[in-house]
Simulated assay, not measured.
Amino acid sequence: MKRFFHSAGYRWFLLCCAYVVVAAAVMNGFYTKWRLNDGHPALGLSQMVEGTAHRPYVYRQFIPALANGVQALLPPATVARLSERLSEPRRVNSRSGLAMRYPGSEALLPAVTLRYHLVYYLTFVALLASLFVMRRLCLQAGATAVASTAAPAVLALMLPFFLTEGGYFYDFVELLFVMSAVLLALGGSRQTPMRLAGLVALAGLATWNKESFFFFTPALYPLLRRNLPRPQSAALVAVLLLVCGSVYLALRMRYAGNPGSTVDYQLWDNLRYYADPGNWLRTESTYGVLLPRGFGIVTVLAFAGIAVNGWARLPPALRGHARVALCINLPLFLLFCSPGEMRNLSMLYPSLLCLLALALDKWLAPHARTDPAVIPDVR
């Protein structure tokens, strides 16, 4: 029995339990803040799964398409029975349903309730999977097992704070895709053709989830250059752009008749917003507590400290990636994103994660030297 509790398998079991709890807490923080935009006429969940949402939201169809596909595979009688059970009005006062204490939830609409639950739990699975991908990425960046285990949890718990002007299920799927893309690109070489093929396939799925992945692909070039010659790295990025562009074009053609527009120009609104000192001190309720908003002086101070302590330890390839991602993401953020919408700096999530892990290594180093009972490596 003692051998079992000291085994690598049991340590993995504990890690899985910890990450499930973290993912559940993050989903709750997101869902109680935004739900699935229930009742919103332009981007509610019912509009998303039916394909009638406004542009550009309707382009983010990866998870809705999966939910529609799963429902289509089930016999109509099974769908009707599950929908009737899931949409029972009693679930408003039950701890077993998503409509708990919210009578206006679209989870109570029989026509979409099954897909509503599928979207919710597929999002949860994507968030949970991203924690393990992030842990692996931290290890690849050179962080210790302790920091590599803690950093993904810390970053995930910060996500609801970034959802200031809006929160959407596809933001969590995007987290999985950008982290996976960086991990694949970091280890891609001529000796790993399947990894490179997986990166190409992932690019198409990631664009199906959110069209901004098209702009993220050039930031993978410094990572590919780690093991590939310059011409092959550039050619692979060109292929990724072609795949992303093709998927995006297909989505635009498919939903060309939907209301809305492709992008909104918001540069002047952003400049006015960031020039107002009061906006740097605003608060909002996150995790049920009134706390500083995702964009503000507290966040900037925290991220500055993480960058200062982690940058010197960041491998050259990841430094190059961070620079390119910043040069791409920041102009797009200022030009097209709502003021203070931190979630739209998502191209910087991998860099923030690695910097956080390496900064944690530095901060925990004195304790690691004096305490031999550190968390074991469960790579």
Rank of each mutant, 00 (worst) to 15 (best):
H40Q: 15
C138G: 12
T149S: 11
L118F: 05
P231N: 08
A65S: 14
L163E: 15
W311T: 04
M194H: 12
A67L: 10
R252E: 11
A126G: 10
E50S: 14
P339S: 05
V239F: 00
H367N: 08
P315I: 09
A359Y: 00
A304S: 14
F62Y: 14
T52C: 00
R11M: 10
S105G: 06
L74Y: 01
Y265T: 15
L202Y: 04
P292H: 06
T52G: 02
S346N: 12
P376V: 13
M253W: 14
R101I: 00
L122S: 07
I306E: 01
P229F: 09
A42E: 13
L137T: 03
V239I: 09
L242D: 05
L199P: 04
L236Y: 09
V58G: 03
L45R: 05
P372I: 04
M194G: 12
P41V: 11
V289G: 11
V289K: 02
V22P: 05
F213H: 12
S46C: 08
G257S: 04
A275D: 13
G278A: 07
G305V: 07
L114E: 05
P160L: 12
S346L: 15
L66P: 09
M100E: 12
W280P: 04
M347W: 05
L360Q: 07
E174W: 14
P56K: 11
F295W: 09
M27P: 03
T113Q: 03
T217F: 06
R55C: 00
Y19N: 00
W363L: 15
